[in-house]
């Protein structure tokens, strides 16, 4: 295997992580727990299938995924911010809802319990989402550090009362962050569908949680989180390529990315300092 091939595959595997982690970092910096990434991704993956199917082109898939993600983000914002539901409960509820809803819709739309028919997609590096993912990290860093919305997001996630006394609309800032987060994570899901030209039931397979681990490992900073995504993706690539060699029992090789995630997060957690108001909404 060539090194170029290794990096190429790593980048392709990292793309959904990069999107989801970007979304996760944004929402968590605003103080909203991002357990929902998995649900956003799966919703986005299904939205992409529907979009591409109905629109007859891969670009419609991107739009479809994005739309579902923004919608789910809005739902999470409505539940956890507008109505003050516990963010973790709301997050888990959305994850479960999406698993069930996509299965149901799969049956309705494609008359299948396991997968959609082959749809339009992008082949390999022709996928614009790969390049968008690379641009995303610096853009997110600029958004957080150099824009008004970013400053307000950081303030709201650390000390919502302080922001509120200065007239910053705390709930609105958080809602905006969560909706954008939904859209970003969903694009990560859409990538999977468009890459495989097909939606399969529960195809995100925990990637949303790995992305959340990358956010924590990256200490809630976009650049570090992106590096963590690339690291996890490299481990997965290694796993795939090792499996092909059959040097080690496949069962062990498949564990590599998950073990690495656990080790990385366990090591990082003691030093990581989450946004101070994470999960604690402003009491009104």
């Amino acid at each position: 295997m060539s090194l170029l091939h290794f990096f190429g595959q790593t980048l392709r595997i990292a793309t959904p992580y990069l999107f989801a982690a970007a979304g996760g970092a944004l929402a968590e910096r605003a103080g909203v727990v991002s357990l929902t990434l998995e649900g956003f991704m799966l919703g986005g993956a299904f939205g992409a299938a529907i979009g591409a199917w109905l629109g007859g082109g891969a670009w419609f898939g991107i739009l479809g995924g994005l739309a579902v993600g923004l919608l789910l983000g809005g739902l999470h914002a409505l539940g956890s911010i507008r109505f003050g539901a516990d963010q973790i409960v709301s997050g888990v509820a959305i994850n479960l809802l999406v698993v069930g809803a996509t299965r149901f819709a799969l049956q309705l739309a494609f008359d299948s319990s396991s997968n959609s028919p082959r749809i339009a997609g992008f082949d390999g590096f022709a996928n614009p989402l790969i390049w968008a993912a690379l641009l995303l990290t610096p853009l997110l860093a600029v958004l957080l550090n150099r824009t008004r919305l970013g400053l307000r997001i950081r303030a709201v996630g650390e000390h919502p009362q302080a922001a509120a006394t200065l007239g910053v609309p705390v709930a609105r800032v958080q809602a905006v962050a969560v909706v954008i987060s939904g859209g970003l994570a969903a694009l990560g899901g859409a990538y999977l569908t468009l890459d495989q030209h097909q939606f399969t039931d529960s195809m995100t397979a925990g990637r949303g949680f790995i992305a959340l681990a990358a956010v924590i490992f990256g200490r809630w900073q976009p650049l570090r989180a992106a590096v963590a995504c690339l690291l996890f993706a490299a481990a997965e690539t290694l796993q795939i390529q090792l499996q092909a060699t059959q040097w080690i029992a496949a069962q062990f090789v498949v564990m590599i990315p998950y073990v690495l995630t656990i080790v990385a997060v366990a090591g990082a957690v003691t030093r990581a300092k989450p946004p101070a108001a994470l999960g604690r909404p402003l009491a009104s």
């Binding site: 400053l151 650390e158 000390h159 009362q161 302080a162 922001a163 006394t165 200065l166 946004p275």
Partner: peptide, 8 residues
Amino acid sequence: HFMLVPTL
């Protein structure tokens, strides 16, 4: 009780 964001 200060209304300041310590990380800013």
